[in-house]
């Protein structure tokens, strides 16, 4: 996964970069399955690897910019910033609970309640579904609102261009 990410950094051909980002998402989905998050893996494979790749290829087709301009290969300012940030973050993880630790603070608040009571309170055997639809229904409502807003935004941004082109065409017809 890290290898695909680094390749994405080096490659100049944008089609290849986008394909690699799809592969990267698919790797992420596989890792989610390993870490027991099957629902997330489904979503990542369908939405992250599928829809996002198609959207990016569509953008590439609309902009007709096949390859990236060649810059100087390494820019030191950003690189040092990135390295410092990474070092600080790694220092921060030294206090984190170990991988798979059942006593980690993440597992201590509402999660056990979801696991114990969701079958009797909501119904479906899949706990993630119960949480999604019932306990955190407002989050899901907000999510749909965000998606709706994004769809409107895309339509407004791309629709305006088409209207102008149509007007131009009409003017050319008139003259």
């Amino acid at each position: 996964m890290a290898v695909t990410a680094v390749f994405m950094l080096w490659l100049r051909d944008l089609v290849a970069v986008i394909m690699l980002s799809g592969i990267y998402s698919l790797f992420a989905a596989m890792i989610y399955v390993v870490m027991d998050a099957v629902d997330v893996a489904f979503t990542e494979a369908a939405v992250g690897a599928g829809v996002a790749t198609v959207l990016m290829l569509g953008t590439l087709a609309l902009t007709r910019q096949g390859t990236e301009k060649v810059h100087k290969t390494i820019s030191w300012g950003p690189l040092s910033l990135v390295l410092v940030t990474g070092a600080v973050l790694i220092y921060g993880t030294l206090d984190m609970p170990r991988y798979g630790d059942p006593n980690a603070p993440v597992h201590s608040h509402v999660a056990p309640r979801y696991i114990e009571r969701s079958a009797s309170e909501v119904g479906p055997p899949n706990i993630v579904t119960s949480v999604l639809a019932s306990y955190r229904g407002y989050d899901t409502l907000g999510e749909t609102a965000v998606v709706f807003t994004a769809a409107i935004g895309v339509l407004v941004i791309l629709g305006r261009r088409n209207r102008r082109q149509r007007k131009k065409a009409k003017r050319e017809d008139a003259t």
């Binding site: 939405v47 992250g48 959207l55 509402v110 696991i115 993630v128 949480v131 999510e143």
Partner: peptide, 22 residues
Amino acid sequence: SNPLPHFLILTAIVVGVATTSL
């Protein structure tokens, strides 16, 4: 495994694609 992060990330993936498309 803890279902709560799974749910949060499920939402985040969909929102992420929405912002990407924008």
